[in-house]
Amino acid sequence: MNSIKKLFNIEVPIIQGGMVWCSGWRLASAVSNAGGLGLIGAGSMYPEVLREHIQKCRIATSKPFGVNVPLLYPDIEKIMEIIVEEKVEIVFSSAGNPALWTPFLKENNISVVHVIANRKFAEKAEQSGVDAIVAEGFEAGGHNGREETTTLCLVPEICDAVSIPVIAAGGIGSGKAMLAAFALGAEGVQAGSLFAASIESSAHPEFKQAIVQAAEGDTKLSMKSLMPVRLLKNDFYLQVAKAEAEGASRAELIILLGKGRAKKGMFEGDLTEGELEIGQVASYVHDIKPAAQILTEMWQEFILEKERISKLKF
């Protein structure tokens, strides 16, 4: 049996990314009900808001779901306390040292997966006791690795470096991409951008439309000297690009970024001054669909392509 399906007790090895301002209980439950693993994105939630989303998700689905937790979150102790109190069974951690919280989570019978972008952190994550790793390539939306390693290069590198299951992320926008990830050694995939534009996504309708209208080359890795993040190009992105080209310091970039930029863009729909985090596969998205349809289409294409490849003669 596929190790990711077994680990999470799911029907298909497709995980929905726990994206800030997009991944609430409606999206997570829809993906889980369709047979994948839905994740609630805790990074944009106050602790009690997260509790509410967990409780609503449990009402909306009887199937497994998890919570994505950026470990640099300022209220991390309270977040972890709520996760244990609400008996969450799966946590995807990111943006921090997994050794700080993995033992605590494992002691509470929680499966832990950590998101990494290079071999060094993959090895540290395995040493900390995580159950699986998400290898997220340069193509991904949101916060990204400084190394700018593509998924095609990263996944086999990480599969060779660790003995635990690897989930591929970054540029996963189709069943064909999923099959390619499996050929590289992954045993599951995580997709974010496709689900950001789903009907159940909590993103603002204007942001969803911006994703649908995005063309090839409309996203760019930005703020590399601060915290690399892939953004859809808009006026805010151009301001940042200009500041970086002129040699802006970290302090100046922090001032330019300000507070609440991602919320302004992704949740409130300010497409001019907001921070619009999305992956390169945005150019693949042409419709706003139900999450279940997105997952089903990816899985069906994966099966068809797998059969096609098996029949090739060389």
Rank of each mutant, 00 (worst) to 15 (best):
G129L: 01
C57G: 08
G43W: 00
K289Q: 13
A169I: 04
G43T: 01
E126I: 03
V212E: 03
E123D: 08
I309R: 15
I4C: 02
L154P: 01
F236G: 06
N109L: 09
P47V: 02
F302S: 09
L50Y: 00
Q55V: 08
E147Y: 11
S29M: 03
L295G: 05
A60R: 04
L304N: 15
V134A: 05
E252D: 07
N97P: 10
Q300E: 14
A132T: 00
E307M: 12
V31H: 03
F207H: 05
I14C: 01
G35R: 02
V84S: 07
G192L: 00
A60I: 00
A181N: 08
L152Y: 13
K63I: 08
S44G: 08
E123A: 11
I54K: 00
E200I: 04
A42L: 08
V155M: 06
A132F: 00
V112D: 06
T102Y: 07
V12W: 01
S283G: 10
P228S: 06
G129C: 04
I255Y: 13
L50V: 00
S222V: 12
I158M: 07
Q213R: 15
E200F: 03
V112Q: 03
E89V: 12
S163Y: 15
G185C: 10
E216N: 12
A181F: 02
L226I: 10
A168D: 06
P103S: 11
A191S: 13
V189S: 06
G260S: 02
V49D: 10
L152K: 10
L232T: 01
I90K: 01
L105I: 05
S44R: 05
G36V: 06
V115A: 12
V155G: 03
I309Y: 13
V20W: 13
A243W: 03
A180H: 09
D235R: 13
E89F: 13
E244H: 05
M45Q: 07
Q16L: 04
D270M: 04
V12N: 02
R146C: 11
A132M: 00
V91D: 07
I54E: 00
I4T: 07
I303A: 10
A291G: 11
A196S: 11
E52R: 12
S62E: 12
R146N: 11
S23D: 05
S163C: 14
I303D: 12
K6W: 09
L253I: 00
T151I: 09
F121T: 15
A161M: 08
G192M: 02
E246I: 01
L71V: 02
N108S: 09
Q16K: 06
I294H: 12
G269I: 02
I116Y: 05
M298T: 08
T61D: 01
P47M: 02
I10C: 02
A168K: 05
S62N: 14
L304K: 15
V212W: 08
F121N: 15
E305W: 14
S32L: 02
V229Y: 06
M45W: 03
V189A: 03
L100M: 14
D287V: 11
S163N: 14
E107M: 14
